[in-house]
Design a protein around this nucleic acid. Structure first.
Lengths: 214, 214, 214, 214
DNA sequence: CGGTAAACGAGACGGTACGTCGTGTCTTGAC
DNA sequence: GTCAAGACACGACGTACCGTCTCGTTTACCG
C-alpha cells in the first residue's frame, strides 16, 4: 500500500478547472447543504433510505446541482464520507509509542463505530465490485490516512528503540486495523468494543498471544 | 442444498410446512436454477447488476418462485452465499496447532478472496444498517463456522501445551480473522495475499510483533 | 386519401398479441382510469400542464402501466383523443343531402370547438414534425371517419341526382372540412361559430360564392 | 428584422425604451444569430428538438441574451416566424380578380407548405390553450396580412363588377384560407398540393360545387 | 479620459418532467 | 398448491430543459 504523502488527492466533487472559469461559480452553500442533508438523512432514516432525490429535497437543491458535482449517487456518498473524516490525535513526543498506539487505535475504533462516517463504511465496501474507483477513493481518503498515522508511530518506535528493528510494519498495521474493521462490522447492533479492547489489541499484537514455548 | 444439521440455522429458503402438504411439491430443479443463476450473474456482470428480475429470467423461473422461497433479495443472496461455503480442512491430530492454524487461515483467505461467496461478502456487509437479520444470518452461517474451527484449534493448542494456558482465545480469533477480512476488502484489484502471508499472520499473532524490550 | 373501410386500424394502446398470452392480463380498469385522468386534467388545467406523471397520480396508476401501453406521452394523447370520437349523426334516407351535410358539418363544428377531443387537436397538430406517425394516427382515427361520412353523403347526392354528376368530391370535402378547422384554430377564445355558419358554409360550397357573371 | 411600420404589432423582441437609454446597446448581430439558429435547428432536427439552450449554443449567445428579448420560448418562436413572412405578390390592376386570387392562394399555399415559417405553424397552433396571446400574435402577424390581401382583392372584384355585389367576403376568405391550412396540416409527408389545386380551389369557391339544380 | 450602466458569454441555480428500471405483490391459466 | 408469465403500484435513477441568477468582461455614452 503506497504512502499517500501529503496529498489530499482523492476524488472530491469534480473540480472545476483551476484557472478561474467563466460563468457563475459553483455555490459553496449548495455544497454544504448537500453534505449536511446526506448526513442528516443517513442519521435519520438509515442508509438504504438514502436517495439522491431525497437529498436534493432536504437540501433545498435541484438534482442537477448534485449531478453537476458527482457522476452518481455512490460517488457523492464517498465524498461526503471523506468530508467528515475527523482529526486524529497527535502523539506527543514524550508519550510511549505503545500508549500512542492505544490512543490511536481507540480513536479509530470510536470513529468506526460511532460516527456517521463509520456507519457509512459497510455500504462503501459494497461498491467494490461495481465501482472499483469508489472503493479506491475511500481507501485513499479514509483508510490510508489512518493507516499512515499508525505506520508513523511504528516507525518512531523502531527509531527510538521501543520496538525492535526488524518489525514488519505493514503486517503490524494490518494486524491493528483488520480486527477493528472486523469487529465493527460483525457485531450487529450493540457494540461492545471499548477502550480496554483497544488496549488488549495493541498488547496482543505487540507482545504476541504467547506461544507456550516462548 | 445440504441440510444444516442441528442448527437453528438462520435464513434458508422458507421451508414448506413440515407435514407433507397437498398440491404440487416445490421444484428442486427451480431451486438449483436460481442459485446457479445468481452465481453466474454475479460472476458475469458484477454485483450491483444483480436483480431478482434478472435472476428469474436467467434461471427460467417466475419471480414468484423466488419470492415463495425467500422474503426478499438480500435473504436470497445470503442463502446462496451460504450454500457454497466449502469444506474447511481438518487438522490431523499429529499436526502442530501452529501448522493447522496456518492451513486454516490460508483456506479462509483463499475462499474470501477467490470464491464467489467471498466476493459476495462486501455486499452483505452493506446490509447491516437496513437488515440486521441478514447480517446476523451471514455471521451464523459463514463467519461463525470458520471462527469456531479456529477456536477449536486454539483450544487444542492450549490443552496439549503447545499454547500457553492463559491465552485469550477470543482475542486470538479476532486477530486472525480481522486482518483477512480487512485485506480482502481493501485491496481493490490484484490480491497479493498468498500462503506466506498466512504464515506470517499466524506467527505475528502468536509470537507478537516483537517489542524490543521483550 | 384512401378510404378507411370498416377498420378501426389506428394506433391504440399497443395491443397484446391476439392469441391469449400467458401472464396476468392487462387491467381494463387501469386503462379507463388513465383515459379519464387525461380528460379530467386537460379540462382542469389546460394542455401544457398535462404530464405523464400527473396522469399516473390522478389515475392512481404507476407510470409503468402507462408506458406499457404507449411508447410516449404523445401516443397516449392521440389515443385518448381518438377514444372519445363521438358518434356522428346518420342522415335519414328521406333527408336531402344538403340538409344532411349541414347537420354533419354542424356536428363536426361542435365537436371541434366544444369537446375535449376538439380542444386536443391543435396540440396534436404540433406533433407533425417530430412524430409523423402521431399525426397519421390522428388522421386515421379522427379526421378520416368524418371526411368519410361527408364523402358518403356527397356520393349519395350524386347518385340521387341532387348534386351534379361531375362533382369533385375530394375538393368538396376539403372545402367543407378546411374552413371548420381554420376557424376553430384561429379564433382564440370566444367561438362565434354557430349553426347558421354551418348552413352558410354548405350553401357557399355547393352554390358558389357567386361570380357576377354566373 | 424589418420595422413593422404603423402596427401595434404583437410580440417582437421586447423593445428597449424609446428614449435612447444608457449602457451598451443591444447587439443586432446577436439577434440575427438567434433567428438564424432557430431556423437552422428547426430545419435540421425538427421542432420538438428545439430548445432555448440549443439555440443559445448554436447562435454562440448566452441564454440571457435570448430572455432579454423575449419573455419565453414561445414568444421567440412566434417572432422568428413572423420575421420571415415573405412578400405577397401584388395583383396588377389589369389582371382579373380571379387570376389574382389564384395567384395569391398559390403563394400562400407555397409558403404554408414549403417555407420554414409554414412548417412552424402547426407548432404555434399547439400553444393556443396555454398561451392565447401567442396565438393572437401569430394571427396578427401572419394570418391576418394574408387574409387582408384576399379581402382586398375580393372587394376590388365587387367594386369592378367581376364579383356579384352581395358576396359574403368573410365567408369567401374562410373558404379560401381554411382548405389550404387543412390540406397542409393533414398531408403528412409528400405534399401533393400544386398550382392546379389552387386554381380549382378558387373556382370551386367562386362558382360553387355545382348543385344539380343550378 | 475616466465613470457609469447596461449588454454580453458563460454557466450554475431550483424546479419539473421525462422515460427506464427494479422491487415485492398480485393474477392469470396450465399442470 | 406450485409453476411461468407478466401486469400492478411504487419509487428512484440519471438526463434534459425551463426561466432565473450570478460572474467577469465589453461597449457604449456622458461628464
Amino acid at each position: 500500500m503506497s504512502p499517500v504523502l501529503s496529498s489530499e488527492s482523492g476524488v472530491g466533487p469534480e473540480a472545476p478547472p483551476a484557472t478561474r472559469s467563466p460563468g457563475r461559480p459553483r455555490s459553496e452553500k449548495a455544497e454544504r447543504s448537500i453534505i449536511d442533508a446526506v448526513l442528516h438523512l443517513v442519521a435519520e432514516h438509515g442508509f438504504d433510505a438514502l436517495s439522491v432525490e431525497g437529498v436534493a429535497a432536504e437540501a433545498g437543491v435541484g438534482k442537477g446541482t448534485i449531478y453537476r458535482r458527482w457522476p452518481n449517487k455512490e460517488a457523492m456518498i464517498v465524498d461526503v464520507l471523506a468530508s467528515i473524516s475527523e482529526e486524529l490525535p497527535q502523539t506527543p513526543a514524550d508519550q510511549t509509542v505503545r500508549a500512542g498506539l492505544v490512543n490511536l487505535v481507540d480513536t479509530i475504533r470510536i470513529s468506526t463505530q460511532d460516527s456517521p462516517a463509520g456507519r457509512l463504511m459497510p455500504r462503501v465496501m459494497a461498491s467494490v465490485s461495481q465501482y472499483p474507483e469508489v472503493m479506491a477513493a475511500y481507501r485513499h481518503r479514509v483508510v490510508e490516512p489512518r493507516s499512515q498515522r499508525l505506520r508513523e508511530l511504528l516507525v518512531r518506535g523502531k527509531e527510538n528503540g521501543e520496538l525492535k528493528p526488524d518489525l514488519d510494519i505493514d503486517l503490524a498495521v494490518t494486524l491493528l486495523v483488520g480486527p477493528i474493521l472486523y469487529v465493527s462490522m460483525m457485531r450487529s447492533q450493540p457494540q461492545h468494543l471499548d477502550h480496554a479492547t483497544s488496549q488488549r489489541l495493541v498488547d496482543g499484537v505487540l507482545d504476541g498471544l504467547a506461544p507456550h514455548s516462548a
